[in-house]
């Protein structure tokens, strides 16, 4: 069997509230992501899905359990080794206006990611911007995040992630801040990136329809535990766990195009 790119092995994380009560954010969660695979982590707020994302990125150490990136346990690494190892995983956050330093221009933001290519930062930046659909890239270099639209900001965040040539992109609600009409643009961009660069995705989302259409596999999280997982179509079309059923039923859906149904009032 192929070795998973990222493996979470019985990961647990608890937080202590200021009142002293203990919150089990993540409870013994195991999840594998293979190279080039797209996995959606679905859940509602407070389900622990974002905490799990931060643990996967190595931004948060689990209380117990292991995070294995290409077979290496992040917890065993020195600070310097962890820094180098997790470059292979890049985050995309929900709100690109919060994930881009408001004081930096697009050029400066990309230069941070391209700091090992000092001689060719300018050219690489323009190429990256072109690549994520901000064309011509030179037009965007001197702009500040607040001078861009929400969709454009998210593209800049994606360009910065791509600069690190990641093998896994962990996207935490990357579409929640975007207008419905823009979502398709971002999703298509993510698909292009996957095809071109063979990256794997961990897409953290509350949106079942997007999870279904975008991911190969889906894991449903509730109160810190993964209650159901499997192929996206199977899990979300024929859910077995009561919570998944409830979740699927709660979404007000628009039906896919049906052939000329004439339920409409006569003209």
């Amino acid at each position: 069997m192929q070795e998973p790119l990222l493996a979470l092995d019985k990961v647990t994380k608890t937080f202590r509230r200021s009142g002293g009560s203990i919150v089990n954010a993540v409870r013994s969660v195991s999840l594998d992501i293979g190279p080039g695979e797209t996995v959606a982590l679905v859940g509602e707020s407070g389900s622990g899905k974002s905490t799990l994302g931060r643990i996967a990125l190595g931004l948060l150490a689990p209380d117990s359990g292991r995070v294995l990136l290409a077979g290496r346990c992040l917890g065993d690494l020195s600070a310097a080794a962890l820094r180098d190892a997790r470059i292979a995983m890049q985050p995309i956050f929900q709100d690109a206006s919060a994930s881009l330093n408001p004081r930096r221009t697009v050029r400066e933001l990309l230069a941070q990611a391209l700091r090992h290519h000092r001689d060719s930062v300018e050219q690489r930046s323009v190429d990256l911007l072109d690549h994520v659909g901000l064309r011509p890239g030179t037009e965007y270099l001197l702009r500040f995040p607040h001078e861009l639209s929400g969709g454009q900001r998210q593209r800049v965040a994606i360009a910065r992630a791509l600069a690190m040539e990641p093998r896994l992109i962990i996207a935490d609600e990357p579409l929640s801040g975007a207008d419905v009409s823009i979502r398709g643009q971002i999703l298509n961009l993510l698909i292009d990136i996957k095809e071109e660069h063979r990256v794997a995705y961990l897409m953290i989302t509350h949106d079942i329809s997007i999870a279904r259409a975008f991911a190969d596999r889906v894991a449903v999280m509730m109160q810190g535990e993964i209650v159901e997982s499997g192929p996206a179509e199977a899990v979300l079309h024929a859910p077995t766990h009561p919570y998944t059923k409830q979740l699927v039923a709660a979404v007000p859906m628009l039906d896919a195009p049906t052939a000329r149904d004439r339920e409409i009032g006569d003209a």
Partner: peptide
């Protein structure tokens, strides 16, 4: 907007979208 809201992929595997910015 309706096509985009369905979050479904077409035969080419693409999501429907409206070009340009808000």
């Amino acid at each position: 907007l309706l096509k985009a809201a369905q979050a479904a992929r077409n035969a080419q595997g693409r999501f429907a979208t409206i070009s340009g910015d808000p």
